[in-house]
Amino acid sequence: MAYASALLRDPARTYREIDLAGRTAAADGPALVQVLYEELGQALRVAAWAAEHRQYQTRSERVTRATAILFALEANLDHDKGGDVSAALQRFYAGCRRQVVEAAIGTDGAPFRRVAAELDEIAQAWKQARAA
């Protein structure tokens, strides 16, 4: 019964979680990375909004989600196959995490949006590489 009441309290969140679970369940490695980039960008944009509107709990939740995704992306880099590209991405992800954590203490959404824009560039390159 507690589970049902949790579903009714925030049906939009429940839908997002079900949608994410469905997209990740059938995703192969490259498709999963694409889903992670999408989720990461969304988390950062919501964190920006929340910071500007002083919605501290939402900001904290989205910062936690964004940093967790950044850690996951970094942890799954294949340094044997990726070489210099993997090393560059590792530094990039670490820099993004640092910027997100620093932005988490303020009320300016711009740093979150800057990181999201930088990650969007990587995501687009990843999507194009998969299509080729």
Rank of each mutant, 00 (worst) to 15 (best):
W49I: 15
A51V: 02
Q55A: 09
G29T: 14
L89K: 06
K127A: 12
A12E: 11
T24D: 07
S86W: 02
E38I: 08
V63T: 04
S86I: 01
L70Y: 02
R98Q: 13
A103Y: 01
E102Y: 00
A117K: 09
A21H: 09
Y56E: 10
A116E: 06
T24A: 09
E38V: 10
P111G: 04
T107F: 09
R62K: 11
A27C: 03
T64E: 14
Y3I: 11
S60E: 15
A110L: 03
V100E: 02
V100Q: 03
L89S: 00
Q99N: 08
A131S: 09
Y37T: 05
V33M: 05
V63F: 06
E121C: 10
C96S: 07
L119R: 01
A75I: 00
A43W: 05
Q57W: 07
G109F: 00
A94E: 11
A25F: 04
L89C: 04
P30C: 08
Q128F: 00
Q42E: 15
Q55T: 10
D78N: 13
V63H: 01
M1L: 09
Q34G: 14
Y56D: 12
Q57E: 14
L40N: 01
L40E: 07
R113W: 00
L40T: 03
R114L: 12
A117Y: 05
A129H: 12
K81Y: 06
A31K: 09
V101S: 00
D84N: 06
L20S: 13
Q124I: 04
A117Q: 10
L40R: 04
R45E: 14
A51I: 06
A72E: 11
D80Y: 11
S60W: 11
F92N: 00
T58G: 03
A125R: 13
T107N: 14
Q128V: 09
A31Y: 04
A51S: 13
Y3L: 12
Q57I: 08
N76W: 01
D80T: 14
R54Y: 02
R130F: 08
A4I: 10
T107C: 13
M1Q: 10
F92T: 08
L20C: 08
R23Y: 07
A51R: 00
A26S: 14
E17I: 06
L8I: 05
T64L: 10
Y37V: 06
A66Y: 02
Q34S: 13
G29W: 14
R98E: 13
A27G: 01
P30K: 00
L7G: 02
S60A: 15
E118P: 12
L7M: 12
A110F: 04
D80M: 07
R113T: 08
E121Q: 15
L44G: 01
R45N: 13
D120N: 08
E39G: 13
V100H: 03
R16T: 06
G83M: 00
V85H: 14
P30N: 08
L32D: 05
R45S: 13
A4S: 11
L36M: 12
S60K: 12
A129R: 12
G95T: 07
R65L: 13
V63A: 00
A117P: 03
A123C: 05
I122F: 12
R9W: 00
T107H: 11
A48E: 04
A25M: 12
D80I: 13
T58A: 10
A2H: 08
I122K: 10
A125D: 09
L36F: 11
D19M: 06
A117I: 08
R16C: 02
R54T: 10
D80S: 13
V33K: 03
V85N: 08
